[in-house]
Write a protein that binds this DNA or RNA. Structure first.
Lengths: 360, 360
DNA sequence: CTGTTAGCGCCTTCAT
DNA sequence: ATGAAGGCGCTAACAG
């Protein structure tokens, strides 16, 4: 950080800044009043065809561009929506953001994007910045539940908020989530049906990871298989070294015949760890991932995984937010849950017959 | 698209909109003039400790948040930078965007993001919207050279622009690019050194793809290997079906012993196509990819690839833009080129001895 | 140290 | 159909 924006306020004057033409300028050149010019330029209000032409011509000639800042001030509406995102470089979030952006753009809104690097204070700061910028709504992919108070502040100020993917505020605002519990259940039941009983899970925190782990537990219980906590790991969702996280889980459970990784990063770690241990997939160990990213279908064997409608999650969130902004939806917060889908590929097969030494 | 923003202007009045407190409100409650309140709230200008406290207290109590729109109007500076991006869901762009966002945030700027879906008119529209919003600068990952005129317009209006990754405007503005030609050369020379002579390339358009293909040609020429156009394909950079694009190239060149794919999407397609043909890697065919994404290291065999400093490209672009905005850098457009790096893994080996029937 | 005044660029009654 | 005037929320001279 060399120099923050505020510090250079002085400098700016010295720089030759192009004075952009204003409605006033256009009006003067067209020999009409400012209000007339404004009327033709903004498209509302009367103006004779004659004047219309002249004003338009002058505007073009001068390269007039309406100043949206001034417009927003007057209209008390910014047409901007803010999005707070943990880490844009995660493909999942990038997809979600793409979905959101597409919907917002189609509806004439602009999207402001702020990252948080997973730091709470950054999240809070982003929310404050957005409020100051008069955003009309906020979409939040929160990393931490500590943002609750800030979220409530924003809501108090009349700014609608919707959470995507994770729900940290416990229903204080709208949310669009994946049915995580169901995803975990689908993955686990699939492994159980294939005959596995010792299924390890590389889990993660937050509503996503916890929901998926809960689904795992439920599936086991349903099948009458005892839940063994040694088979359950919970590591940061996007660890620096997913391989060693996976290696630890596998190392501690040599009798496991399957591993379920609750996101795509962790799935990669599992693959690496299994290879290093020379456990073949699916003969020695089956693997199920989460979030169907492209590489999962072109590795060998192709990975069985729980697909989520990533882009749609973003789109739904944006649509929900717009419904709130436009007052089309009123009342208490709603939570929409989208369904995951199991994609069976080649990484899941029947469990091996383990040598006596590795039986539990 | 159900209803665009403009259309609901009327509705908005009917909705109960929370009137946010203004400096005026704070001033009144604190029994001082508006300017005094402004001085303490904005932090510049004198105010007695006594008054300071009172104003601050009132502001907190009222939940006062400064209106950045009004501030921007007054200051004639928005503190906002616009980024136009082809497709955010491409991991490369997401990384670049993350780098940009990080730098901007650290410097107190906000980032507005607009997608284009690769459509020219959307790109132009985004540029116009940004200009209207008084962004202080624009970062562009352009899909089409047709934007030149719009870019010139923006520059004419005094808005600095920097292109990232691709350069469509041919030096009309600053740019931060990868040394693509060098990347293509690195990949190809590596294959040549391994003994390959019939090297196919799955290329792409734009400065990126073309640069990499140029590097490929140069490396062959340097080695005295004739360049055979049948070995050179040029497909859309992010085709819907990368596998069949790859299959076509490979099918047409059964004597090829290596394939170089100029981006990560195409690399995936090559892997799929080779597998379907049952060409083993690297025994039957070596493969080099481009852009070191995580999955390349956990497929088997791990993929040799040309890595680019993705995030850094974004960071450099943002820094360059800030230099322009703050007038730290003046003069004609500059182009910065970052170096790619060859990452040798297991997908490249010596060429096979082909049966007579498949020799050229 | 504080208040008065003016204006950023735009839009919008309200007269004419 | 057009113009004059006022104000969105904020800050920056300039007086006092």
């Amino acid at each position: 950080v060399t120099e923050r924006r505020e510090d250079r306020a002085a400098k700016v004057d010295s720089r030759r800044r192009v004075r952009r033409p204003t409605v006033g300028d256009v009006a003067r050149h067209a020999d009409v009043s400012q209000s007339t010019a404004s009327r033709v330029l903004s498209g509302r209000g009367y103006a004779s065809e004659d004047v219309r032409q002249r004003v338009r011509g002058v505007a073009d000639a001068l390269g007039y561009v309406p100043n949206d800042i001034a417009r927003s001030l007057k209209a008390r509406q910014s047409g901007v929506v803010g999005m707070v995102i943990d880490d844009l470089s995660q493909s999942f979030f990038a997809d979600v953001a793409a979905g959101i952006e597409g919907v917002l753009r189609a509806h004439g809104y602009r999207m402001l994007l702020a990252g948080t690097d997973g730091i709470f204070s950054e999240e809070a700061a982003a929310l404050d910045r957005f409020a100051a910028l008069q955003v009309e709504g906020i979409i939040l992919a929160p990393a931490t539940a500590a943002s609750v108070s800030h979220v409530r502040d924003a809501i108090g100020r009349g700014i609608p908020i919707v959470e995507v993917d994770r729900q940290a505020t416990d229903g204080a605002c709208d949310a669009v989530l994946l049915e995580n519990e169901r995803g975990g259940w689908l993955a686990t039941r699939h492994l159980i049906e294939r005959g596995h009983r010792r299924i390890a899970i590389l889990g993660a925190p937050l509503t996503t990871g916890e929901g998926r782990t809960a689904g795992y537990r439920n599936a086991l219980k349903e099948a009458g298989i005892p839940v063994d906590d040694r088979l359950i790991a919970c590591v940061p969702g996007h660890p620096a070294d997913p391989e060693s996280a996976a290696a630890e889980l596998i190392g501690a459970n040599p009798e496991a015949t399957a591993v379920f990784a609750v996101n795509n990063i962790l799935a990669g770690g599992v693959l690496m760890a299994l290879r290093r241990r020379r456990w073949t997939i699916p003969d020695r160990c089956s693997v199920v991932g989460f979030d169907d990213v492209p590489w999962m279908s072109f590795i060998e064997p192709a990975l069985t995984t729980v697909a989520q409608p990533t882009r749609e999650i973003g789109e739904q969130a944006a649509l929900l937010l717009l419904d709130r902004i436009d007052g089309r939806l009123v009342g208490p917060p709603v939570t929409r849950r989208l369904e995951p889908r199991l994609v069976v590929r080649a990484s899941t097969g029947p469990p091996p017959r383990l040598p006596e030494s590795e039986r539990m």
